[in-house]
Write a protein that binds this DNA or RNA. Structure first.
Lengths: 200, 200
DNA sequence: GCGGCTCTGTGAACGGGTTCACAGACGCAT
DNA sequence: ATGCGTCTGTGAACCCGTTCACAGAGCCGC
């Protein structure tokens, strides 16, 4: 689709761009895993999403602005980078593509809006339940979410200890099984109930 | 620009659309004042923005989705409503317009992202300082922000009492003057310092 | 000018969640 | 097997902000 794409690679742990950078291109993940997050200046982190093969990111800064988030590789990655000028030219030529692009932006808006809402209104256990289910569906390893509690905490917007305590309760009810580096969902329905608790 | 716009009016207090509604059009404010907010099912409210003459809203739901927020009139309004089909047709015909549209969406994304970040990392006084300065600049009545403390609290994401207590401190330092229904900014620099406190 | 409204001010109690401080537990490298 | 680093578990202290409960204060209509 885009012949102008440049292939770039990234080692696990490397930061592709940081919040505040100028940024004039967006990326398609050919293979790998990228974490999108925002950082407080004291080092706290809020993870927004984890993206995998086939997903795109970095579009927000395309139209004259700074990067609003930080993108880092969770695993070795092969990316295709597409520069602003190429994107603009293509969108101008292909209105249908522009509409797709708009739709993608609207999806982003929706998910961000939902995150803000959850953050504003829902307590930690509810957010944790939602995020666990989301990660399970997305990283799809059938009921097993492979992520450390520390990373999970960043994703939920809480502390590692706080997450551990909620998981301790759930474990005691046999809703989840916890092991080093991963969490297994045993009672999906129970977590869904918790996640829905506040959503009427 | 858009001959397909339909003029509609709205009385102060009326709700134009609610979060979750299907929604297939967006709006331009010809005259009036609209508040965009998200609601928790227990009635709590987080106000996202207050829009005035010339501003547009409601674009997110244009591409097959529910409204992500609620729009209510803070004053009598005259709006122009533009339906999905007309928007799509126009964007398809005028690529440059599509690019403008994309840019507008990116701006929204930026401001939402900033809100999430503030909410996640910054304490109430900092958010209050930022919001006061924002409202002052936007509703531009030269140093006087005309809004009740209850509404301000919704906007900051805090309680009425919490806001009152912070204002009490600022008043004692002569940074602001508080009166029924409005707040006057006396020491803008001091508030800017508070607002920047955590932004490095 | 007198009820009745809404808006503001403030203190006390409470609580969700964090911070702090360790104590295991697991896994990899040598 | 021995260590060492990272991940997990948990209790205690603490704190920001909310909730609760009132007490003024400004404003409007009658």
């Amino acid at each position: 689709m885009e012949a102008a794409a440049v292939r770039t690679t990234l080692r696990s742990g490397e930061v592709l761009f940081s919040q505040g950078d100028p940024g004039d291109s967006f990326y398609v993940i050919e293979h790998g895993e990228i974490e999108i997050s925002v950082l407080a200046n004291d080092g706290r982190k809020l993870a927004l999403d984890i993206l995998r093969d086939g997903e795109v990111f970095g579009e927000i800064a395309l139209f004259g602005g700074e990067r609003t988030a930080t993108a880092a590789a969770l695993a070795d990655c092969v990316l295709r980078q597409i520069r602003r000028a190429d994107v603009l030219a293509t969108l101008r030529r292909k209105p249908d593509l522009a509409l797709d692009f708009i739709e993608a932006l609207c999806d982003r808006l929706r998910s961000l809006s939902r995150k803000l809402e959850e953050r504003a209104f829902l307590p930690v256990p509810v957010r944790l339940a939602n995020r666990l289910l989301y990660l399970d569906a997305k990283l799809g390893a059938a009921g097993r979410v492979t992520v450390s509690q520390a990373d999970l905490a960043d994703f939920v917007g809480a502390t590692r200890e706080g997450v551990a305590k909620v998981l301790a309760v759930w474990r005691s009810r046999n809703w989840v099984a916890v092991s080093r580096g991963s969490i297994e969902i045993l009672e999906r329905a129970a977590l869904e109930r918790v996640g829905d608790a506040y959503r009427k």
